[in-house]
């Protein structure tokens, strides 16, 4: 391999591998290329991608948010209970978003004011959110025939493309625009790159860390509302399975485009790759547990490539 290829492969190698996987499934799995199947994959991974984008933003400020799945569940049951109780769509949606943002703010304050490492702080907040979700629902799922104005958020189509896919693209687009084109987004990146340099350059690094974790919580709130709307139901542990999958998507994303660093396009491609892998394996008749095994290997392989960034996020106060 010539030296000129190395940077290209470092940036796009994983994406190319995903492309090879796509071609493999296209050639071997029946119906894989059907438009309905491909849109189904995109729809299926939309929640994971949105949660992953939030997790990525926390990582960009060099913090870990391990609470997002439980916060998402709590926000979902909050939204579901309100809708089920006959309250308006706006109130239910606002409450779900507020829960996400509120818990993101709590994460940020615990990390920056109480100086608890984010690895521990967000695990503790996850436990609190989990407990509250069971308290709100009494452990019983909320299911019903809910107003179309609400369920359309997660079930509608636009130009034959599912609403969930549009939401995922919109959240990713806003996140990229924010991080690459705005002052506050740039400052989040600076804070994560070198917190001491950022502080000495006069940036309010504590507030920026709070903002990063707040946005991660906000993404969990958005995912919760869409999840509740698309399923017309809410349960206390409904987003629990997304924790590992979303983290795997982010880890995989960190091996491409900006190697070693969380980035939104990488997270999106990472989520699509994981979705495609799961779908292709199902179509090929592989047992369900093979997906879990693959997910484990993806995380280990990706983290081996991006270890330094994760170590900093996990163990720096």
């Amino acid at each position: 391999m010539t030296a000129a290829w190395k940077p290209f492969l470092a940036r796009y190698g994983t994406a190319l591998a995903a492309l090879v996987l796509f071609v493999f499934f296209a050639a071997t799995a029946r119906n894989f290329l059907a438009a309905g199947n491909l849109l189904g994959i995109a729809k299926h991974i939309s929640h994971i991608a949105i949660l992953g984008i939030g997790f990525s933003i926390a990582l960009i400020v060099a913090e870990l948010d391990l609470s997002f799945a439980n916060v998402c569940s709590l926000a979902a049951v909050t939204t579901g209970v309100l809708i089920h109780g006959g309250h308006g769509t706006w109130l239910a949606v606002s409450a779900g978003l507020a829960v996400g943002l509120g818990f993101g703010l709590v994460n940020g304050l615990v990390v920056t004011v109480l100086k608890v490492p984010s690895l521990i702080a967000t695990l503790a907040v996850a436990a609190i959110a989990n407990g509250l979700a069971f308290f709100v629902t009494d452990g019983v799922s909320v299911v019903g025939r809910w107003p179309v104005g609400f369920t359309a958020l997660g079930r509608g189509d636009l130009f034959a493309i599912p609403a969930l896919v549009w939401w995922m693209v919109a959240v990713a687009g806003v996140a990229v625009l924010f991080l690459k084109q705005t002052r506050n987004g740039f400052r989040l990146v600076c804070t994560g790159e070198n917190v001491e340099a950022a502080r000495l350059a006069g940036l309010p690094v504590r507030r920026l860390k709070v903002l990063g974790l707040l946005l991660s919580g906000g993404a969990a709130g958005v995912a919760a509302v869409l999840l509740t709307a698309s399923l017309s139901s809410a349960a206390a542990n409904m987003a629990g399975d997304f924790l590992l999958t979303a983290i795997a998507a982010v880890m995989l994303g960190m091996t491409m485009f900006e190697p070693g660093h969380a980035n939104i396009p990488g997270t999106l491609v990472g989520a699509l790759t994981i979705g495609m892998l799961g779908n292709g394996l199902v179509l090929l008749g592989a047992p369900y547990y093979v997906q879990d095994i693959c997910l484990g290997f993806i995380i280990i392989g990706s983290v081996a490539v991006s270890a330094s960034v994760l170590t900093r996020a996990a163990f720096d106060v």
Partner: peptide, 10 residues
């Protein structure tokens, strides 16, 4: 006190 991955201008 520089951020190595960021550009000169940044």
């Amino acid at each position: 006190a520089l951020a190595p991955r960021l550009s000169i201008a940044q």
